[in-house]
């Protein structure tokens, strides 16, 4: 059913990284029945939390439990997405039968799952890093901060909120050197890229205008966010 994903394709997604095993072990060692629960979309692409990783992690936990002489039943499962209700149906029994669900989904998945596991706690097995793209196989790059007020048309398609270490709107600051950010030689200066890109597009003069203070209320700073598509939400109500 699922289309085979070509890693060369540049796919925007949520990028995660598995937590250190010791941290995971500390979280779950007191439980008897552990379900390692993968999510087969974003975090599977970045090899952090898909079904395959869930299976491997479950074996590691079993080995550790055996080493520590702890009796523990460790199962693994995965669904397509831990962020949509319909995918949960066929795992409902497994979820209920566990003492703890170690979710390998992003933070969205863990929250969503937590609402569906009743008295069973849902713990995070990965750290959710960012919205990113596959730069090339094995390299993921943050490109969007989800600020709720896109200005990419003003910055040559390069996001200063996500890609400038200071998220400044009128850069580059004085810390840029050889096109790199002051924080590290491995980090490109977003504003250097913006200037070069806009030069190429012939729109550099647009940068002469002072960009006004950004409205951050549309981002995380305005409190939890919600998007409601009224026509669809309404139809859902009627049916």
């Amino acid at each position: 059913m699922q289309a085979k994903r070509d890693e060369k394709e540049r796919i925007a997604m949520i990028v995660g990284k598995q937590k250190p095993f010791e941290e995971i072990w500390e979280m779950i060692k007191s439980f008897k029945k552990v379900l390692v629960f993968g999510c087969n979309t974003c975090v599977a692409i970045c090899h952090a939390g898909g079904g395959k990783e869930a299976e491997i992690l479950a074996s590691l936990i079993r080995m550790k439990a055996a080493q520590e002489d702890i009796s523990m039943e460790v199962k693994h499962a995965a669904i397509e997405r831990q962020c949509e209700p319909e995918f949960f149906e066929h795992v409902a029994d497994e979820l209920r039968a566990s003492d703890v669900v170690l979710s390998l989904a992003c933070g969205v998945g863990v929250n969503f799952l937590s609402d569906r596991t009743g008295d069973t706690p849902a713990y995070p097995g990965i750290n959710t890093e960012f919205f990113g793209a596959v730069e090339k196989a094995g390299i993921f790059k943050e490109l969007c901060a989800g600020c709720g007020g896109c200005i990419l048309h003003l910055t040559g398609g390069i996001c200063p909120v996500a890609r400038c270490s200071k998220s400044i709107m009128n850069g580059p600051c004085g810390g840029t050197s050889d096109g790199k950010c002051e924080i590290s030689q491995d980090v490109d200066c977003a504003w250097y890229l913006i200037v070069e890109r806009m030069k190429k597009l012939g729109t550099l003069e647009k940068l002469s205008e002072i960009m006004l203070p950004k409205d951050w209320s549309t981002g995380l700073y305005g409190g939890p966010r919600r998007v409601v598509l009224e026509h669809i939400a309404e139809e859902g109500k009627e049916s």
Partner: peptide, 20 residues
């Protein structure tokens, strides 16, 4: 950037930039 300082795990603000 706070990375250079003695509290590198701090959250920075940058609500407005220096020109603003």
């Amino acid at each position: 950037h706070q990375k250079f300082g003695n509290h590198p795990t701090a959250k920075n603000v940058y609500d407005i930039d220096s020109i603003q």
